[in-house]
Amino acid sequence: METLDEFDAVLAEDGTLAGHRVQAVDLTDRTHRLLAAEVTGAIFLGCPMEEEAAAQVRARGALVFPPVPGLPFDPYRGQLYTPDELFEGLSTPDGYAATPDSRAYAWFQRTKADGDVFASMLRAVHDDSISDALDELLAGARVVGVMGGHAMARGTDAYAGAARLGRTLARSGFTVATGGGPGAMEAANLGAYAAPHDDTMLTEALQLLAKAPSFTPSIGDWAGAAFEVRGRWPGGGGSVGIPTWFYGHEPPNAFAAHLAKYFANATREDGLLARSNAGVIFLPGAAGTVQEIFDNATPNYYESRGEPTPMVLVDRAHWTERLPTWPLLKALARDRAMESRIALVDTVEEAADALAHIGSSNSQD
Rank of each mutant, 00 (worst) to 15 (best):
His150Arg: 01
Val144Lys: 13
Met152Phe: 13
Asp128Trp: 14
Glu136Val: 14
Ile130Ala: 03
Met121Phe: 02
Asp132Ser: 12
Ala151Glu: 15
Ala124Asn: 05
Val125Lys: 00
Ala124His: 03
Ala153Met: 02
His126Met: 07
Ala151Pro: 03
Leu122Tyr: 10
Gly148Cys: 09
Ala153Asp: 11
Leu137Met: 10
Ala139Pro: 10
Gly148Val: 00
Gly145Arg: 08
Ala141Gln: 02
Val143Leu: 00
Val146Ser: 01
Gly148Asp: 10
Val146Gln: 01
Met121His: 05
Val143Thr: 07
Leu134Thr: 13
Met152Asp: 15
Arg142Val: 10
Met121Gly: 13
Asp135Leu: 11
Ala153Ser: 09
Ala133Pro: 14
Ala141Gly: 11
Ala133Glu: 11
Gly155Ile: 09
Met147Ile: 05
Asp132Asn: 10
Ala141Cys: 00
Arg123Met: 01
Glu136Thr: 14
Gly149Phe: 00
Ile130Pro: 12
Ala124Phe: 09
Gly145His: 03
Asp127His: 06
Ala153Pro: 05
Leu122Gly: 06
Gly145Pro: 06
Ala141Pro: 06
Leu138Cys: 07
Arg142Cys: 01
Leu137Ala: 09
Glu136Ile: 13
Ile130Gln: 08
Ala124Met: 11
Leu122Gln: 02
Gly140Ser: 13
Ala133Ser: 12
Met121Val: 09
Val144Asn: 12
Val146Met: 06
Met121Ile: 01
Met147Trp: 01
Val125Cys: 07
Ser131Phe: 02
Leu138Gly: 02
Ala124Gln: 15
Ala141Ile: 00
Leu137Tyr: 12
Met152Glu: 15
Met152Arg: 15
Gly155Trp: 03
Ser131Ile: 05
Gly145Met: 14
Arg154Gly: 07
Met121Tyr: 08
Ala151Phe: 12
Gly140Met: 07
Asp135Thr: 10
Glu136Gln: 13
